[in-house]
Amino acid sequence: MTEEPPGDKSTASGPRIALALGGGSARGLAHIAMLEVFDELGIKPSIIAGTSMGSICGACYAAGLSAAEIRAGFESQFASRTGFLAQFAGKLRGSLSTLWSVRSPGIVDNVTLFEMLLPEALHSDFESLKIPFVAIAADFYAIEQVVLDRGPIIPALAASCALPGMARPVVLEGRVLIDGGYVNPVPYDVVMDRADITVAVDVTGDPQRRPGARVPGTVEAVTGATQLLFHSITREKLKSIAPDIFIRPKVGGYSALDYFKIGEILDAAQGAKDDLKRQLSQHLEAIS
């Protein structure tokens, strides 16, 4: 799925910046605050890599939407639960079973879901994006990373976000693909060699101790364990290769499905946003 790098279409002069947006479900809404930094500084990344939720935010930005537009889009979508569900009405082609299988009611078909929810700009191919963009998925059987960078965008994003237990695996070119976080939760290493400055944003959640609880419950234990595994991959990776700027917004306590808390999450990411802005400005000054 990738031998040839996509060409640098960024016209910006000056240092090339690679931006890697990590996986973290609703916590990944914090990525929008990081994209605001780029808009406020008036610079564009020369390449973006995204895993899971990072791939959605990254693809939107690569398609030319501004951070404000992305934010407005998410806010209108998650303004209220009833509003969120209402938009499904009339949009679903075929029966409801195309989205949810009857056998496993918890499991969603991401391709169908994303076709309904994602902005029009993403109903297109990678080749049409304004900024080169790659999405990270995991090949379930080969147990290895797959870098998706061509063809239709939506199935690639669906694969990058196919969290086992939540979404059906996505089959692309004969490969069974699941959430990219399983091989590369913060995919900065994929784009590092194509930029002068690499920015990585990690929104992996952290196990939270409930007040008064001495031992975690089962759901908490399973969720927390998965988060620990994601962290372990990133920690080991940092031992061999590190980005220039590594940002971890303080959103670790939000749960994967806290999409309706978008306002709160973006507020929580404010500190990280300021941090990124300062560090990025310093790096740009140092280089130019």
Binding site: F140, I143, P164, G165, I178, Y182, A225, L229, I233, E236
Partner: peptide, 13 residues
């Protein structure tokens, strides 16, 4: 997929 997924994560680590 769910049972195997933690193995994939460990392999990645």
């Amino acid at each position: 997929a769910l049972v195997s997924s933690s193995q994939i994560l460990q392999r990645s680590i």
